[in-house]
C-alpha cells in the first residue's frame, strides 16, 4: 500500500507542474481577484448578497405561484423546503459569479 500511495502522489503532483499556460494564467487571475477583494469597500461587498437574497425571493415566489401538474401541490413537496436554502445559494452564487 505504501508503494501505491507513493506512486499515486508522485503522479498527481507531477501533473500540477505540467498545467497548461492558459489554466495557470486563469488561476493567477483568480488569486489576484481574491486578494484584491479584501481591499473592496464594505458597502459594495454587502450589495452582492443583498441582491442575491432579492433574486432568491423572486425565484421562490415564482415557484410557489407556478401552475403544476393536475393534483400536484408544490407546498406539500417536502423537498421544496429542504432545497430552499439551495435556491438561496443558487441565487447568491449566480450573482457572485456574474460580478
Amino acid at each position: 500500500m505504501d508503494k501505491l500511495e507513493h506512486n499515486l502522489r508522485q503522479q498527481l503532483r507531477a501533473a500540477e507542474s505540467q498545467l497548461d499556460d492558459n489554466t495557470a494564467r486563469r488561476l493567477r487571475q483568480a488569486r489576484s481577484t481574491a486578494l484584491a477583494s479584501s481591499r473592496r469597500p464594505l458597502l459594495s461587498r454587502l450589495m452582492v448578497p443583498a441582491l442575491g437574497m432579492a433574486t432568491a425571493s423572486v425565484v421562490a415566489l415564482v415557484l410557489v405561484l407556478s401552475p403544476g401538474e393536475p393534483g400536484q401541490d408544490i407546498l406539500d413537496n417536502a423537498s421544496f423546503y429542504q432545497d430552499l436554502d439551495f435556491y438561496n445559494w443558487l441565487a447568491e452564487n449566480d450573482a457572485t459569479w456574474k460580478s
Partner: peptide, 23 residues
Amino acid sequence: ERRAFLMARVALGNDNDALDIVQ
C-alpha cells in the same frame, strides 16, 4: 492553487466549475 484546481477538476469533471470553486 494548481493542486486545488486539479482536485476540483477531478471531482467535478468541469474546468470552469473547478476554477470558480478555487476562486
